[in-house]
Simulated scan of single mutants.
Amino acid sequence: MRIGELAQRTGVSTRLLRYYGEQGLLTPSRDANGYRSFDEDDVVRVRQIRRLLAAGLTTGVIASALRCARGEEARLDLCPELAGVLHRELAAMDDRIGALQRHRAVLAGYLSADR
């Protein structure tokens, strides 16, 4: 299938699909005329990418995680290396949440002082 059909079937823009290719997340074949060609597995792959993006992962982490992703729900078969990466991502996310909570408290303090 061509990129437009993949976009239609997955709800992802052609521009974003090209970006996924640039990031190494999708590897379409090329027809003789140079057009990208995708197959049914790429529909599942795009859905996996979207699920992993929804978890807050970067495309760099997703490139590693896709090797372990199974099915459209992107269930992960955790090898020790991937588990370590995901633990680090979770810790970094917790740090960002903590920083946001501190910022929120300061901002709320300004608003309560105004009353």
Rank of each mutant, 00 (worst) to 15 (best):
E72I: 08
E22Y: 06
G60S: 00
L6R: 04
V43Q: 00
G56C: 11
R45G: 08
R115P: 10
G21V: 03
R115C: 12
L16I: 14
H103W: 09
G84E: 08
R104K: 12
A113G: 06
F38M: 07
R104H: 10
E5G: 01
S37H: 11
L76F: 06
E89M: 01
V85E: 08
V43I: 10
S112F: 12
L57P: 01
L26E: 05
T14V: 15
Q48N: 03
R88D: 13
V12G: 08
D95K: 14
V44P: 01
G71M: 10
G11Q: 11
L107H: 03
R2W: 02
A69R: 00
A74F: 07
T14K: 12
V85D: 05
A69G: 08
Y20D: 09
R30W: 00
Y19W: 10
V106A: 15
D39Y: 09
C68I: 02
E72N: 14
V61R: 01
G60Y: 02
H103A: 14
Q23Y: 07
V85M: 15
E89L: 06
R70F: 12
L53H: 04
Q48C: 05
V12P: 05
A69D: 02
I97H: 09
S64W: 09
A113M: 12
V61S: 08
M93Q: 14
D42L: 01
T10P: 03
D31N: 15
L6K: 01
A7V: 00
R104V: 05
D39W: 11
R2I: 03
